[in-house]
């Protein structure tokens, strides 16, 4: 089973995207999509990605809900900063924080979350020191941002732990 489907979830996802792109469930489309998704699963095996196993569906859902809420809030905050920029220069700056995440995929997810939030931008991660450099648009209170990153880290640790 594993030799035929090295990454079952990836293959199913690719097949689903293929069907959505074609917008049909004809036999030909399904056959072509299955061939493609299995072949691309083998190609991914060559790339040798790190495996990790997210657990605890309920916690994951709660974590994503809090991230979505943060993104909405940060959208509004950044909009206000941009509209006020003529009167008040944004108080932006760089921050460093030490992380304690081992899992590569958790780190990648943290990077995506922080970049997708308009207020913060991921810049550099030092693997040896495990320290992260990021940029904050409106640094009214440094501790709040550090705590936010720490909270994401704790959530991801629970998910991938």
């Amino acid at each position: 089973m594993r030799t035929w489907f090295p990454y079952p979830l990836l293959s199913v996802g690719l097949l689903l995207i293929w069907l959505l792109l074609n917008q049909s469930v004809a036999t030909g489309t399904i056959v072509m999509g299955t061939i493609l998704s299995v072949a691309l699963g083998w190609v991914t095996l060559k790339l040798n990605p790190t495996r990790s196993h997210p657990r605890r569906i309920l916690r994951t859902l709660r974590f994503s809900a809090s991230v979505i809420l943060d993104v909405v809030r940060s959208n509004i905050a950044v909009m206000l900063v941009i509209l006020r920029v003529g009167r008040r220069a944004p108080n932006s700056g760089f921050l460093t924080v030490d992380l304690d995440l081992e899992d590569e995929n958790a780190l990648a997810l943290l990077a995506c979350i922080m970049t997708a939030t308009p207020g913060t931008a991921w810049l550099e991660y030092d693997r040896r020191r495990k320290s992260l450099l990021f940029h904050v648009l409106d640094m009214e209170n440094e501790d709040v941002w550090l705590q936010t990153v720490k909270r994401y880290e704790a959530g991801l640790k629970e998910m991938f732990g």
């Binding site: 941009i82 920029v85 944004p90 970049t115 997708a116 308009p118 931008a121």
Partner: peptide, 15 residues
């Protein structure tokens, strides 16, 4: 258009 330097502008397209 209005933010002063590159690192602050990096936040705008996410919006």
């Amino acid at each position: 258009l209005r933010l002063p330097d590159f690192y602050t502008r990096l936040h705008a397209p996410t919006l």
